[in-house]
Design a protein around this nucleic acid. Sequence first.
DNA 1: ATGTAATTTTGATATTTATCTAATTAGATA
DNA 2: TATCTAATTAGATAAATATCAAAATTACAT
Lengths: 193, 193
Amino acid sequence: MIQLNRIVAFYKTMGDPTRVRIVALLAKGPLHGQAIAGKLGLTAPTITHHIKKLRDIHVVYERRDKNTIYFYLNESMIKQQAQVLTQLLEKRGEELEDMVESSLERQKTIGNFFTKEGKLKNIPAQRKKKLMVFEHIVSGLKRGKKYDEKELNEYIKQFHDDYATIRREFIINHYMYRENSIYELNPEEMWAK
Amino acid sequence: MIQLNRIVAFYKTMGDPTRVRIVALLAKGPLHGQAIAGKLGLTAPTITHHIKKLRDIHVVYERRDKNTIYFYLNESMIKQQAQVLTQLLEKRGEELEDMVESSLERQKTIGNFFTKEGKLKNIPAQRKKKLMVFEHIVSGLKRGKKYDEKELNEYIKQFHDDYATIRREFIINHYMYRENSIYELNPEEMWAK
DNA sequence: ATGTAATTTTGATATTTATCTAATTAGATA
DNA sequence: TATCTAATTAGATAAATATCAAAATTACAT
């Protein structure tokens, strides 16, 4: 599935001089917040703000050492994403347009079923929309991580009180699988369509 | 010369869903403004607004047919720009950072010597800054186009009343060459450094 | 010359966002 | 536990911008 959101988010995020400067700095090696702020002549909160956006598009990640958090550049993500738009263009004819429009459709559905605070208003009746909603929730889970039931419930509760129903749907629709009450994300190829 | 501006401008421009939708539409073939507006459910002025930004980064160009202006996608520019960021990352060490910072320096100089309306306040005394200013002005000229003197004067007058001095500087610094009072842009390799 | 159709400009509005200061949180250490 | 340091959050402000309606412009057609 192609995600217009991700493409737009990537480009939007990289389309800011301060963030490109941060990327340029981190290309030399990891740095902590204060160091970045110092070198760019900005304050720590401003760096936090930008790092958050760079983290959202997986262009930086961090590692803690004692009190200090070092930010690392994920170069492969940049290289990868930079190619996506051109790959898109290879898809000729209706295809590109359809993908873009259906991606927007999805975005609208998410906007309709979630509050601005990120709570799920209710579970859609229409199967297609229901799957979009589940995919949205599931996208906050880490690939490869094992969740025990309590942990997963807590996560789902962020979105909706009826965590039991949603957790069950995760299994039914193959977003996750369970073994001895331990849950883990399935690869996307297995998800319901 | 690497232009941070251009990279940032490109990413910023492509980081908008409406503009990506326009690109997707044009990938199928040229369209005129009203048609785009209709397909996207937006008004004509909005399309003009976005087309202007896409034109600024040379991702669309246009051709007139009778009363109607058709907008075309310049795919090669997209492919080209998409590579620039990754190429940048190949430059390791100080280099990238230096390029980014010097690019910002240039931007600041332009900001200092031009009014918000785009008028040149005065010609810088410092050679380096003077060249930046000339490059900025010259960048609005079309490569390959032949300008007669009157036309060139008119263009320069947009920026500063003393068009004669500036026109002369263009020749001295090899931004342009003149033959029989016809002026044309030189390739960038010939420009003064 | 005058009318017409497409585009652009102008001006207004609502939203987003980059940045700061001040307050708060989270870890580490003594 | 108290305290230090680094990072984040909260709240405020100023600038940028996506969008629209109305007006102006442009190039053609009659």
